[in-house]
Amino acid sequence: MYGNAYIDPDQTPNKLTQDEDPARLAEFEARIEGGDKIEPKDWMPKEYRKQLIRMIEQHAHSEIIGALPEGTWITRAPGFRRKLALMAKVQDEVGHAQLLYSAAETLGKSREEMINDLISGKSKYSNVFNYPAETWADTAIISWLIDAGAIVNQLANSKGSYGPYCRALERICVEESFHLKYGHDNVVFLATGTKTQREMVQDALIRWWKPVMHFFGPSDNISVHTKTLMKWKVKMASNDEMRQTFLNMYVPKIWDLGLVIPDPNLKKNESTGLWEYTEPDWEEFKRVINGDGPCNKERLAVRKYAEEKGRWVRKALLRKDAEYVTPLV
């Protein structure tokens, strides 16, 4: 599950295509315009490759880090039905990471390099996973609303231009839609359950509303840079567009369950058709994305621990004559 790639607003637009052969660039852009998919061995602008690696890598990291907050509840899930479902759900997320690392590898960066960049803090992952899942109800809210947000984003991106990423996303979306059903079912049981259960899920919604609103990222700076990435179908929809789609689909469902969303200004403007809401605290978003969230250190420490603990296994598997092979996706 994943929100949107965080694009560096300081990058100057002319850098995107400088040094590129204008004829090849025109041909490349015409292919995308015509709806063609770009495949690993095709010519592509350097910046297209770079942006895609960054984006797919961030997505893969988000899956693997995203397995942690929910994963800690597998051992506490109440009853066989929930325990089995949560195990399968988190396993799917790890599977998505595997699929996405493979898609990114087709662009020339190895999985090991990407994971090293994750651990060193060089590459980012979705901000929401820097918040804790405090109770069982938090896992229900995450599975429902964060996965719902991820589907909005990933469905858009699956219409993008890079073949291996699109194919991975199509498969991921099918699995995410099961997660959403599981999450919704879980929230329904809590919201219609005992007083304690109802309180648990309401508290979880209050805790998670901020990360949910942060999920798609701040309003896009509509720069030439963003326009080029949209023209190349690397970025498919603006952050605000996706946030609106999400609110439109899920706010009524949340209200239907009798849950209160902690934003008194949240309402649909019937004349514009758009949702109005209290502007999320983007300063906090930036602070958290840059490492100062409630769980950043813990998440990376766990990942680092797993990598270091498992290193001997990976080393033992390497044959001396083994060559690096890019996966086929």
Binding site: A67, V94, G95, K309, G310, L317
Partner: peptide, 18 residues
């Protein structure tokens, strides 16, 4: 199931979970 998210390679993580 406690190996979820902690396996030495992603493929093993997935295998232990299965």
């Amino acid at each position: 199931s406690e190996w979820t998210g902690l396996g030495p390679v992603l493929e093993e993580d997935i295998a232990f979970s299965s």
